[in-house]
């Protein structure tokens, strides 16, 4: 049991960290809706994996990468209406996921295999999945370091970067690809419907706490890891569902960050009034 818990803790830290980091980039590049669609495509893939007897993680990765590629091409070809196409993929993916669950032999949503896909599970982490997570982390960090100037240029101003000859589409595609793979690997812990709590709550909290881009990246990935780790420990201690607990912890952190920002803003204004 201790070995399973250690694996889960490690996976939680890595998933939270990666989700927080990729969430920062998709938010700054304004492709949040696109990544939302990729996440749902991963859920559809995992659900199909269930009825076709594939490992849900691998089928989720295949679906996530395919949708990232489709969205990447759409991003290149369409100047307007990308968000709407993205929403169409989101609804189609959700429909596929729900159909797949309905078509599977088990009709109870708490059944172990479906529970992993929908709500996440502490027991779902294996050594193999952990190694893949580590590899993805290494690849992601290498990508960010290798293309630091390119990515910084896009974070500053995407249109200007494109006008200067930067391959914006390729980097958007790469970011969606990483988002897809990271989401596919993370939903074992959080569940397909709650993975967004790790993807967007940490960056939203980081935005409340600092204005500096690199601090936002650092805080987003750190808060992601803290949310996942705390959620896991609390869920283990209180026997709560792991995905929902992680989502509640990350939402609480976001709320605290918002309250902290409001309090410091009020203090700053009071100080200004007294000057």
């Amino acid at each position: 049991m201790l070995e399973i818990l250690a694996l889960a803790l490690l996976a939680a830290v890595l998933s939270g960290n990666l989700c927080g980091a990729v969430g920062f980039y998709v938010q700054r590049l304004k492709i949040t809706t696109l990544s939302f669609s990729v996440a749902h495509a991963a859920l559809a893939g995992a659900s199909l994996g269930l009825i076709l007897n594939f490992d849900p993680v691998y089928s989720a990765i295949v679906f996530a990468i395919s949708s990232a590629l489709i969205l990447g091409v759409i991003f290149t070809k369409m100047q307007y209406g990308r968000e709407l196409v993205s929403m169409a993929i989101f609804s189609a993916s959700s429909a596929i996921a729900l159909f797949a669950i309905y078509m599977s032999n088990v009709r109870v949503l708490a059944t172990a295999s479906i529970a992993v896909v929908l709500w996440g599970s502490l027991l779902a982490v294996t050594v193999q999945k952990l190694i893949i997570l580590v590899l993805v982390l290494i690849l992601f960090v290498l990508y960010i370091l290798a293309y630091r100037m390119h990515i910084d240029s896009m974070l500053y101003d995407v249109k200007l970067a494109e006008a200067e000859g930067l391959n914006v589409q390729a980097h958007m595609l790469a970011m969606l690809f990483f988002a897809g793979v990271i989401i596919s690997l993370s939903f074992r812990l959080t569940g397909g419907f709650l993975v967004f709590a790790l993807l967007y709550n940490p960056v939203a909290a980081a935005l409340q706490l600092t204005r500096k881009a690199y601090m936002q990246l650092f805080l987003s990935s750190t808060l992601g890891a803290v949310s996942a780790l705390t959620g896991l420990v609390v869920s283990y201690a209180l026997d709560w569902p792991v995905g929902a607990t992680i989502a509640i912890v990350s939402s609480t952190i976001l709320l605290l960050a918002y309250l902290f920002k409001t309090a410091t803003e009020m203090a700053r204004k009071r100080k200004l009034r007294n000057v």
Partner: peptide
């Protein structure tokens, strides 16, 4: 927006790198 002026001008060279 916290990028420094120097960094912003440097980023103009990104496509050549």
């Amino acid at each position: 927006e916290a990028y420094t002026v120097r960094r912003i001008i440097q980023l103009g060279f990104a496509p050549y790198k």
